[in-house]
């Protein structure tokens, strides 16, 4: 939320550990990006400009998960300097794909991939909310263009943006897709917040829930349906794609031994 003033709001974009795909989505907005950029002052965006103001900022978008100590410290610093902090994309909002790796199994993989001598930087791949208060989450892997524009326009107009009140199923129906559940294929669409346009199911891929859980998701109801044709191992595989660092995942699949620790 930004109060209307004479001067243009100062916006900054930062990225932690991630693929930078959500920033590429911003660039893919092309003319719309230029339009949005015209309404604000982009004072820090390492990917595309040299100007790098230290704050304070009106709006900050953060992409990626803070994996290293310096990223975690930077996040806390940015929180202090920022009026409205937005998480951009599933790595920032959920822990996302990097979150598939558990904290406990990291050391094993460091040794296998980098060798015994290596001093790792990464601690754990967690969402931003594990460390600071975040004002709004733009979910998605990657984020959806229309959602970014909608949220940014709301924020710049001084309103508090709201999440979609419906699940992916709503948009999946509009897109004309046959329901995956009818074909006995696992799908997290029913419990996932809409806004993506059901793009993955439309392409023939599963919904792994990268838009985060919808309000009152009724996970139990979905599980009852899924267990009619699937088993907990397969269902967990779906939940562990983007949602592994969510409290719901911990509640559902708490186990003494993590799958990744095998090998």
């Amino acid at each position: 939320m930004v109060k209307k003033t004479q001067t243009k709001p100062k916006v900054a974009i930062f990225d932690f550990t991630d693929c930078e795909g959500c920033e590429v989505v911003l660039i893919s907005l092309r003319n719309k990006l230029l339009e949005l950029a015209g309404e604000v002052e982009i004072v820090n965006w390492r990917l595309v400009q040299k100007r790098a103001d230290e704050g304070p900022y009106d709006v900050v978008l953060i992409e990626g998960t803070p994996v290293t100590r310096r990223e975690i410290d930077a996040l806390k610093y940015l929180r202090e300097k920022t009026k409205f902090l937005i998480g951009l994309g599933s790595c920032a909002t959920l822990g996302g794909i990097p979150g598939i790796i558990d904290k406990e199994t990291r050391s094993l993989w460091y040794k296998k991939i980098y060798g015994e001598e290596y001093k790792p930087r990464g601690i754990d791949a967690l969402p931003l909310v594990a460390y600071v208060k975040v004002d709004y989450l733009i979910h998605g892997c990657p984020v959806e263009k229309k959602e970014v524009v909608r949220v940014m326009e709301e924020v710049l107009a001084g309103r508090f943006p709201k999440g979609r009140g419906y699940s992916v199923c709503f948009e999946c129906k509009i897109a004309g897709n046959r329901c995956r559940l009818l074909d006995k294929k696992v799908c997290l669409g029913p419990i996932t917040q809409g806004g993506c346009g059901a793009i993955c199911v439309s392409g023939g891929s599963p919904c792994y829930g990268c838009f985060g859980l919808r309000d009152s998701p009724q996970i139990d109801n979905l599980l009852t349906t899924l267990y009619k044709f699937s088993d907990s191992e397969e269902v967990e595989r779906y939940f562990s794609m983007f949602l592994k660092k969510t409290p719901e995942y911990a509640k559902l699949f708490k186990k003494s031994k993590k799958k990744n620790a095998k090998e």
Binding site: T65, E71, P98, I101, T105, W109, Y110, R121
Partner: peptide, 10 residues
Amino acid sequence: HEGERLFEGM
């Protein structure tokens, strides 16, 4: 300085 994501383990 990018944080390690360990895809080959993931």
